[in-house]
Design a protein around this nucleic acid. Sequence first.
DNA 1: CCTTAAAATTTACGCGCGTAAAAAAATAAT
DNA 2: ATTATTTTTTTACGCGCGTAAATTTTAAGG
Lengths: 335, 335
Amino acid sequence: MEDFAAASGISRPTVSKYFNDPESVRPSTRQKIEEALERFAYRPNIYAMNQNRRATKNIGIVVPYLADPFFAEIVRVIERRCIDAGFSPSLFSSHGEQQREIDILDNLRSIKPAGVLLAPLGRRSDKAAIEDFCRAVPTVLFDSSIEGMGEAFVGSDNYSFVSQTVEYLSRTGEPPCFFEMQHPANPNANKRRDAYLSMMQRLQLEPHVLRIAGEGWAFEEIGRQGGLKLIAEDAFPTNTVLCSNDRLAIGFLAACYEKGVRVGRTKGCDLRVASHDGHPFSQFTCPALTTSAHDYAMVSEHVVETLFRLIESGGRFEKREETLFPARLIMRDSA
Amino acid sequence: MEDFAAASGISRPTVSKYFNDPESVRPSTRQKIEEALERFAYRPNIYAMNQNRRATKNIGIVVPYLADPFFAEIVRVIERRCIDAGFSPSLFSSHGEQQREIDILDNLRSIKPAGVLLAPLGRRSDKAAIEDFCRAVPTVLFDSSIEGMGEAFVGSDNYSFVSQTVEYLSRTGEPPCFFEMQHPANPNANKRRDAYLSMMQRLQLEPHVLRIAGEGWAFEEIGRQGGLKLIAEDAFPTNTVLCSNDRLAIGFLAACYEKGVRVGRTKGCDLRVASHDGHPFSQFTCPALTTSAHDYAMVSEHVVETLFRLIESGGRFEKREETLFPARLIMRDSA
DNA sequence: CCTTAAAATTTACGCGCGTAAAAAAATAAT
DNA sequence: ATTATTTTTTTACGCGCGTAAATTTTAAGG
């Protein structure tokens, strides 16, 4: 910057000021800098910039598993909004591992982020580490909430997801049984099962939960294996299966197809299958998946809006905010 | 670090040395530091660390589109290997936009990465900007190559992909027609079409290329729309369709299912469909997709191996390396 | 016990920038 | 032209750490 300032005939502090806000210098000065900029292609070092700043423009985004299209999609939208607002988002995936999540949060501290958007692992998170982090850095949680942590939580209302699918399915055919993993990685899974149970009770229907083995993040394969097993055992109490999430459902549908189980809501079909999430691929399954979808746009919009508001408020809210968005039922051919 | 060093009764430079390599200090010293570490939970600032280092441990990973499960998966593996090797990977997605790619490369310079793994946008990349970057930072390209740029390229051999599928399909049934987007974002698409044409010529078969409209990264939807159109027009010269990539195929299969076109290689089927990439979801389509798959493990292994070797060689190879891995044909039910 | 080599410490400087305070220069208002 | 105001420059320091050189301490070997 020293050299560049000399080359443009302006003092370094003024150049520094220019990079913080080009409008804060006199037009003639600005012009001189921008001319030099074209000749020398100098760029300030963003990490050195942030080293000594009161408020950086860094935003950390942390998700549990980036190879999941659900997170990939929501991150894509969030990242774009941050960039448009003049922030520099940094993206991290915990890869489903506790230690990795801890390391990421540790590293995030050193880039002094203005704020962090964190989708925690959930059950596997080190609660103490996250609590510690949230105290030090303005943080908005999303996707899955951890009781009392972060200044705000933005997510989808699991009850809304399940109530819509259960209501719809039981109104238009046999009541659904609930298909889920035995050890779900994500707390949302538990909320969905509970919602299913309470919803069935309200409708005075008998609940059936089909729990399949499997751990980790290979949900499709777990759903497929579970589906094959259930089909082999003919273990369906009703002809309607409600999957905890779309990735399980994708695997389950594959199993049905393999075994010749016809899925759909038309005559001649053996099974209706529905699910939750509005996964980007759910419209390309065979048949297209009836699902209760996240409002991606609203959630991501509100996540960043909340974070920006948090940053402007100096990093603290008086009271922890919790915003849940209702799901939207997308009726397709599978149920 | 000053305070922490004082608290642990060790000098700051020695503490600094410890963090660079815990084994480089005397065991008794190491123990003292680690005891203090537990009491104070101090972490060095990684960006300040890298500020003044000869060689940082940063690695930049840049992909064109992270919401594509193909990239998400390969990045997942690459990231893990980098971490295991003691590096700090930073992940960036160009979102399919030229300006974003340029900005990312600009920012990457300031973290002084030891090396960068870059999957360029391809056709949309600003060649000059990338060339400039590669001259300044040790870079290994992957996925799609740009003539002469970077110290090395690691990818899959598109000819190998297509020759295997074409050979297999024409040996076991009617010769394939080739299904692709009119304006592919990725240069691999062009290579695949060329490979198809040359392969058909070699086999003395008449080639047919079905080109569908569409631009951008929503390949599934493009494939679906294209499929619906082709089905409506009954525009298939043969009963065998070879898609340029799996995401197109996923959309195409959805269209077939919607329209009651039976896909598979058994009697009673209308169409055989095969494709290329070995997309993580290709085994969950209905029917499961026959595809010529990237050797993900080999490619990602070799990408990082090449980069590590490049870093050890001081950032330059005598001669640009180019490694192409052959594809592996995965025969499933769709063809 | 002394010698030697290894490890640790002290001292000092630099990375690339932000920022505050005071002085100087340029512009605007009278 | 003079004064008031804004902008820029100068000067100086700090961020959190790496690193080199010289010095001192420690452990190992005879």
